[in-house]
Lab assay of single mutants.
Amino acid sequence: QVNIAPGSLDKALNQYAAHSGFTLSVDASLTRGKQSNGLHGDYDVESGLQQLLDGSGLQVKPLGNNSWTLEP
């Protein structure tokens, strides 16, 4: 069960990665100043990332080996 409060997208993504045990490689300029609506409930990694990114204009991309990145 994930419980991440709304706020900074950077912070939300870092909390989610730490909670879910995956690696997220992101260029900080992509997420700077963006906000997230947070995340509450049970999600697989990709669904949770998509939910956190909702409205940010960013997309999640798998890199393999439980690693992910973001792209515009």
Score class of each variant (00 low, 15 high):
Ser20Cys: 15
Lys11His: 13
Ala12Thr: 08
Ser20Gly: 13
Asn65Ser: 10
Gly64His: 05
Thr69Cys: 10
Asp44Tyr: 05
Ser47Asn: 08
Gln15Asn: 07
Val26Trp: 15
His19Lys: 09
Asp27Met: 06
Gly33Met: 04
Ile4Trp: 01
Ser8Val: 04
Val45Trp: 12
Lys61Ser: 06
Asn65Ala: 09
Gly7Ser: 06
Ala5His: 08
Gly55Tyr: 04
Leu39Thr: 03
Ser56Met: 08
Gln15His: 08
Asn65Thr: 08
Ser8Phe: 09
Leu70Cys: 09
Asn14Arg: 15
Ala17Tyr: 00
Leu58Phe: 04
Thr23Ala: 08
Asp10Lys: 06
Gly64Asn: 06
Asp44Gly: 08
Glu46Ser: 08
Ser29Val: 10
Tyr16Val: 02
Pro72Val: 12
Gly57His: 05
His40Lys: 12
Asp27His: 08
Arg32Phe: 15
Leu39Lys: 03
Gly57Val: 01
Leu30Glu: 05
Lys61Ile: 13
Ser36Ile: 02
Val26Phe: 15
Asn66Met: 07
Tyr43Pro: 04
Ser8His: 06
His40Cys: 14
Asp10Gly: 07
Leu13Trp: 02
Leu58Lys: 00
Gly21Ser: 06
Leu70Ser: 00
Ser36His: 06
Leu63Arg: 03
Asp27Tyr: 05
Trp68Pro: 02
Leu9Val: 03
Gln59Val: 14
Leu24Gln: 01
Leu49Val: 01
Ser67Phe: 09
Lys61Ala: 06
Ala17Met: 11
Asp42Phe: 15
Leu49Ala: 00
Leu70Asn: 01
Asp44Glu: 08
Phe22Thr: 05
Ser25Gly: 04
Asn66Arg: 04
Gly55Cys: 07
Val2Ile: 11
Asp42Arg: 13
Pro6Asn: 02
Val2Met: 08
Leu52Thr: 00
Leu13Ala: 01
Glu71Lys: 07
Leu9Ser: 03
Leu58Cys: 05
Leu58Trp: 03
Asp27Val: 07
His19Glu: 11
Leu24Tyr: 10
Gly64Cys: 07
Gly38Leu: 03
Phe22Leu: 09
Asn37Pro: 14
Glu71Asn: 03
Gly64Tyr: 04
Ala18Met: 12
Gly48Lys: 01
Val26Gly: 08
Asp10Thr: 09
Ala12Cys: 15
Gln1Trp: 15
Ile4Lys: 02
Leu9Phe: 02
Gly48His: 00
Gly64Ser: 07
Leu53Trp: 00
Leu58Ile: 06
Lys61Tyr: 07
Ser25Ile: 15
Gly55Glu: 04
Leu9Ile: 03
Leu63Gly: 07
Gly21Ala: 04
Leu13Ile: 06
Gln59His: 11
Leu70Thr: 02
Gly38Phe: 01
Asn3Arg: 08
Gly55Phe: 06
Ala18Lys: 12
Gly38Lys: 03
Asn3Leu: 10
Val2Cys: 11
Pro6Tyr: 05
Gln51Asn: 06
Leu13Tyr: 02
Val60Trp: 08
Gln59Ala: 11
Ser56Gly: 03
Arg32Asp: 14
Asp54Cys: 15
Ala12Phe: 05
Ala12Leu: 09
Leu63His: 08
Ala28Asp: 11
Arg32Tyr: 15
Ser47Ala: 12
Leu49Lys: 02
Leu49Thr: 00
Asp54Lys: 15
Asp10Glu: 13
Val45Thr: 07
Pro72Ile: 12
His40Asp: 09
Leu70Tyr: 02
Leu52Tyr: 00
Gly7Gln: 11
Ser25Cys: 15
Lys11Gly: 11
Gly7Cys: 12
Gly33Asp: 12
